[in-house]
């Protein structure tokens, strides 16, 4: 999607690369990102007055929003078939002492930031997003199938859905901004491998499984 970064770390220079992500993880991320983009874009067309005036087509926007939303967890669920993805989920789940140090140094804006394959910020983002998507799916279903629950639930679901949508917009914006600022990190998800020096610098506690790099395991 984005142009290959013009850094000295490109594989053409022959600098060592290490494998970071499997092909399955690349696909899960792509599919999730695409569904999220549709979901957010249609939400904006339904919600923001100037976009609603520009686009109209309310019934179509509602249908797209509902289906992209309900399908959002599906790529990850399918991806659970991949051992590499399951292993990374375990890594995202577990917090060690270094993660606490990482968070502390971010909050104080000084000190080292030790990280394994994922730093504490990435772990928190992943978990928060997973929880938020589940809450959005649940509240969305209550609003979609209006006969599922009594009215007070539906009003409550609307309230939570609206405010959590605003938080999601901010958090996903932050996610994209972080990715934009770090081309090597994007290359990791796109090609499956990263520059070994980048890995040592950003994720010093991570021991890559092999030094060869490449596109990742076949699933």
């Amino acid at each position: 999607m984005s142009p290959r970064p013009e850094t000295a770390a490109g594989p053409a220079q022959g600098r060592p690369r290490v494998k970071r992500f499997a092909r399955a993880e690349h696909r899960v991320h792509r599919a999730t990102a695409a569904l999220m983009a549709v979901c957010v874009a249609t939400a904006a067309c339904l919600y923001l007055p100037f976009l609603a005036q520009l686009v109209g087509r309310r019934a179509l926007m509602v249908t797209l929003h509902e289906w992209s939303g309900i399908l959002l967890p599906v790529p990850l669920l399918l991806g659970l078939a991949s051992r590499a993805l399951r292993a990374d989920l375990t890594r995202l789940n577990r917090f060690g002492p270094h993660d606490r140090r990482w968070l502390r140094s971010v909050l104080r804006r000084r000190g080292g930031r030790p990280a394994g394959k994922f730093n504490a910020g990435q772990k928190l983002y992943a978990a928060w997003l997973a929880g938020a998507v589940l809450v959005m799916t649940g509240t969305g279903l209550l609003m979609w199938f209006t006969h599922l629950a009594p009215l007070v639930w539906r009003t409550g679901a609307t309230f939570v859905h609206d405010w959590l949508a605003l938080s999601l917009l901010i958090v996903i914006g932050g996610h994209i901004w972080m990715a934009y600022r770090d081309p090597e990190s994007r290359a990791g998800l796109r090609t499956g491998s990263v520059d070994a020096a980048w890995a040592r610098r950003e994720h010093p506690l991570w021991t890559p499984e092999d030094g060869k790099g490449g596109r990742g395991e076949e699933e």
Binding site: L124, W128, V160, L205
Partner: peptide, 24 residues
Amino acid sequence: DDRRGTPVGRRVVLGMLAAGAAGV
């Protein structure tokens, strides 16, 4: 060592679900 430690991620997910339900 990366795969050991406290399951904070799971707690965050469950916490979000609880917060969502409480919000409703």
